[in-house]
């Protein structure tokens, strides 16, 4: 049987009177690329924020590798190897690319405050390891030349790449991408598609992505969940989603499909 990596059970989240996510169920199977789509304000980002622990769900459960993670702090969830990016890039734009990657290894520092003050053997060993791993990751993403640049000085497309690399420094088993193609030129978008495919194979991980650009979703995702007003409309293959009258209706006037 296929192994379930992430399981979302009857998930509901309210902001005051607004129900942003309503009774959502979803299973993400290991090694797939799945999509989450829906019109603006459908509640997609809120689902990601719930999974990464940014909000505590009003109702329902989130299980990762069989363990309940709702109620945990975001850093605890990150340490359980869930990586994510943001809809509008949230790098530490005034710290170097290298520092962005290094800081994201806080979950496995391996030394404490005293070690840092005294620069103990342990400190040096772990700092070396962290730095070596950071460079290796940057190398894989062809970013090593930019290690000492500030993200704020880099083109948007490159910042996206850095953000994905940063998420991968958590060595995640699940990578959640919130609109990775947003703001990219069409040439960059086709590159991104290949790129995501490469990431999945190279790092052997499961990818869950939110995306408005149908080209990206359709060419990558084996399954797609469509939500509207926080509720599930349909889950199916690209083909099924494309031909669903409900989906077309939900998007009508949105002009994205």
């Amino acid at each position: 049987m296929a192994e379930i990596l992430l399981e979302i059970k009857d998930l509901t989240h309210r902001f005051g009177g607004l129900t942003a996510v309503s009774d959502l169920n979803f299973e993400i199977i290991k090694d797939e690329i799945v999509g989450l789509i829906g019109p603006n304000g459908a509640g997609k980002t809120t689902v990601f924020n719930l999974v990464s622990g940014f909000y505590v769900p009003s109702e329902g459960d989130i299980l990762y590798k069989g363990e309940r993670i709702n109620g945990l702090k975001p850093h605890e969830i990150a340490s359980r190897q869930i990586g994510r990016t943001f809809q509008n890039i949230r790098l530490w734009s005034d710290m170097t690319v290298l520092d962005n990657i290094k800081i994201s290894q806080h979950y496995r520092l391996g030394y404490n405050l005293m070690d840092a003050f005294l620069q103990t053997k342990k400190y040096k060993k772990h700092e070396k390891m962290i730095e070596a791993d950071a460079y290796e990751l940057l190398e894989e993403f062809q970013l090593s030349d930019l290690a000492h640049e500030m993200p704020k000085n880099l083109p948007y497309g490159v910042q996206r790449r850095v953000e994905i690399a940063r998420a991968l420094s958590l060595k995640p088993d699940l990578l959640m991408l919130d609109e990775p193609a947003a703001g990219l030129s069409s040439a960059d978008v086709s590159e991104l598609i290949q790129y995501i495919q490469w990431i999945k194979e190279h790092f052997k991980l499961t990818i869950w992505m939110i995306e408005h650009q149908m080209q990206v979703i359709m060419s990558l995702c084996s399954r797609i969940k469509v939500v509207d007003f926080g509720k599930e409309l349909l889950t199916g293959t690209a083909e099924e989603v494309r031909n669903s009258p409900e989906v077309i209706k939900a998007y009508l006037g949105d002009g994205e499909i």
Partner: peptide
């Protein structure tokens, strides 16, 4: 320092803020 530049990011990237 990561808290100074983006506290949310820090948490999401495993920093116990």
């Amino acid at each position: 320092s990561s808290i100074r530049y983006d506290e949310t990011s820090a948490e999401i990237m495993s920093v116990n803020t």
